[in-house]
């Protein structure tokens, strides 16, 4: 497997950005990850991760249109770059391959629990 350099939390954030499509800004990403994983996150953690991933080239950001919600302040929207998408698909492939090779007995006990 090629090393993608995407950590577990980064993967979650990347996937959430994909799920949110064109509406991915920091607060919303935080909510999404929180509801999906049911853990309590820090907004600073999201920002740090987003900034790091932007440096790595996994995501890119643009300033969105102003709206009334935040007193007319513009939101920074994040999208996954093609490199990011490629990394995600690589991770998925690796995982799928691993899942496919799990023996039947173990797979059944995983499904049960």
């Amino acid at each position: 497997m090629k090393k993608t350099g995407v950590g577990e939390f980064e993967e979650l954030v990347l996937l959430s950005i994909c799920v949110l499509n064109n509406e991915a800004y920091a607060l919303k990403i935080k909510d999404e990850v929180e509801t999906r994983t049911q853990r309590s996150l820090y907004i600073s953690g999201i920002h740090t991760t987003l900034y790091r991933m932007e440096e790595k080239g996994l995501v890119k950001s643009t300033l969105g249109e102003a709206n009334n919600v935040r007193g007319g302040k513009r939101k920074r929207l994040f999208t996954v770059t093609s490199f990011g998408l490629k990394s995600l698909s690589q991770i998925k492939q690796t995982r799928n391959a691993l899942w496919a090779d799990i023996p039947m007995g173990i797979l059944q006990s995983i499904n049960k629990s």
């Binding site: 800004y25 920091a26 607060l27 935080k30 907004i43 600073s44 920002h47 935040r70 302040k73 920074r76």
Partner: peptide, 13 residues
């Protein structure tokens, strides 16, 4: 500063 705006919103929540 953008992040700090987010932070303040988050704090309200």
């Amino acid at each position: 500063q953008e992040m700090i705006d987010d932070l303040n919103d988050d704090h309200q929540d």
